[in-house]
Write a protein that binds this DNA or RNA. Structure first.
Lengths: 229, 229
DNA sequence: TATTGAACATACCAAGGGTATGGCCAATAC
DNA sequence: GTATTGGCCATACCCTTGGTATGTTCAATA
């Protein structure tokens, strides 16, 4: 019964580059927390929230539930941390892509294209789009979303809209942003599930471009959103 | 301990209008199944899938788990039946609204408006939009969807697009339909959650009208989707 | 050196989905 | 009319799993 009861407080690979402001103990702690998050992200992506047991997560991280519940208040809280991490990464990548150019229309195209790419990533799809609203509840889902990716999309939409019609108010911008955000999220699923994803992505871009061109044309003709009433 | 062990095979209210083709036993059975579905729909809508226990469902239907597992293979199968029921009802209501008029553009507006209304119903929101993809898995979700509501939306989109540009193929129609479907689904959540839902719904309609007008304008100018390449 | 508390491990509990089994009675056969 | 069968459902039980309660270790501070 010499069951190897190793790994007490001795991670197999101690974080080598000693972080200045942290004690050894704090570094070990941060390491286990980080590992838990990473393993959870992987398993949640692969099997979904309900089908991923905490036992599987702690086994993957080579710790026990005691460690998990020390760092997180429960399964949902852990999921929320993973969710935020994925959201933040996505928002940042979109933001970076937009800074490549200065022209509003080109920024918009770059941003939307990057968003379309992001929304095809398995992790973002599963954790944010597919299971986010269900696991977090729509309220919290939306709160999180509005602190990262959605806001980026909203900025894009605002730039496009106001380039042609400076009279649209913030609420109207938010409305258009909601529509675009929903459209692109659905597009991501559609593209990924298609028999020829690349072809599907091209069609999405084509359709979005057509819609944007329509908006642009209306703007050039002096037709304002308010004129629709 | 005279615990009333009633309701063996004696429903409190036997289905009065004797259905011709069914025996009494079959009618009782159908009644039990129907009740289970109705109770499940109610509880799933109010508390969500995960937070609704089978015990709560069978208690609400005044039966036991034996009855439930006789009619359904499990919790998810029951959910799927509820899902189909909700989807069918929604598709039918949209379809009915569209038959009110004959003009393609008016049909489209009527259809989209009805869809926007449907997508605000608590049952459709919770069971189809919010938890559908998560509970059924995206694959099955999409299969179900394409057998009812999505197809109706697709027909609307096809009519609008081809009214201006007869050259768009089926795949392109499907692409636009995906975008619109996603946009409207997200819109439903947005509207319901808004402080002033009516006002929010008006803005959605305004935005959609603007986008459609853009499409219409392009079509009138002879600009085709393929020209975007 | 003593003490404290962060960072875990271990053992346990209760809820809930699913299963195995059996009983009852309407429908059918004879 | 009697016997038999199978659909319909109830009861009892199992097992996974999220969560909790308690114990243990050891680095950091006094």
């Amino acid at each position: 019964m010499a069951k190897s009861s190793v790994s007490k407080l001795v991670p197999k690979v101690p974080p080598l580059p000693s972080v200045p402001g942290m004690s050894r103990r704090q570094q070990f702690s941060a390491s286990t927390k980080k590992t838990l998050i990473e393993v959870a992200e992987k398993l949640f992506t692969e099997h979904g929230y309900a089908s991923t047991s905490l036992d599987a997560i702690v086994a993957g991280a080579e710790v026990t539930k005691g460690a998990l519940y020390h760092h997180f208040s429960g399964k949902q809280a852990l999921y929320e941390v993973v969710f935020e991490k994925v959201e933040a990464a996505t928002a940042q990548s979109i933001d970076a892509a937009m800074r490549e150019t200065k022209d509003p229309w080109e920024q918009a195209r770059a941003g939307l294209r990057t968003f379309l790419e992001a929304v095809q990533q398995p992790t973002y799809r599963r954790i944010v789009v597919q299971e986010g609203p269900s696991v977090l509840g729509y309220q919290r889902y939306r709160e999180q979303e509005e602190r990262s990716t959605f806001t980026v999309v909203e900025d894009i939409v605002a730039a496009v809209l106001r380039a042609g019609d400076r009279s649209v108010d913030d609420e109207m911008v938010a409305t258009f942003a909601r529509l675009f955000f929903g459209a692109m999220s659905a597009a991501g699923e559609s593209v990924t599930e298609a028999s020829d994803p690349e072809d599907a992505a091209d069609r999405i871009e084509l359709a979005v471009t057509y819609l944007l061109t329509g908006v642009r044309t209306l703007a050039e003709q002096g037709v304002r959103v308010e004129d629709m009433r």
